[in-house]
Amino acid sequence: MSSTEYVTFNIGGQTFGTSVLEVHDVFKAVSITPVPMARPEIAGVLNLRGRIVTAIDARARLGLQRKTGIRKNAMAIGVERNGESFGLIIDSVGEVMRLEDADLEQNPVNLDPVWASVSKGVHKLGDKLLIAMDIDRMLRLDSGDDLAAA
């Protein structure tokens, strides 16, 4: 039976998880430079060890109310796509857990379409649900523009 090791994180009270293989690093973003005129999902750009990383506000992406002060202090998951670095701004990061792929349930049909579009499925944990996030889709914006791909 195959299983996936998940990095779990919290966005707006909801637990999400994504495969550890997808995640480059988890870091604290202390200074995000906003990019005026950019779409709201883009929180700005930041310097991660000499690389310029585009920060995506996960709350804005999921249509949740945005948190203030993320520019000065935020947790982010670093992912690489097509040679570009992205930082997904999340509320907090949780533990790493291994879950059986067979236990992954389909998205409930009444899930918010935006959420459904970035969810691979749902894992039932003891006291909460974990949404398996599709990072690729997460970096793809509504208008069909793809953040990562050309």
């Binding site: 200074s31 430079t33 990019v35 005026p36 005129m37 950019a38 779409r39 883009i42 750009v45 930041l46 310097n47 000499g50 310029i52 585009t54 097509n82 570009e84 670095s85 992205f86 970096l139 914006l141 523009d145 793809d146 953040l147 990562a148 791909a149 050309a150």
Partner: peptide, 27 residues
Amino acid sequence: VKPLARALSGLAQYSGATILGDGAVIL
């Protein structure tokens, strides 16, 4: 000069970003 991510390349106002001596990223 460092290029911006493609997601931001549609913005004609910017030609890139850079990291200043104090570590801050500016456009």
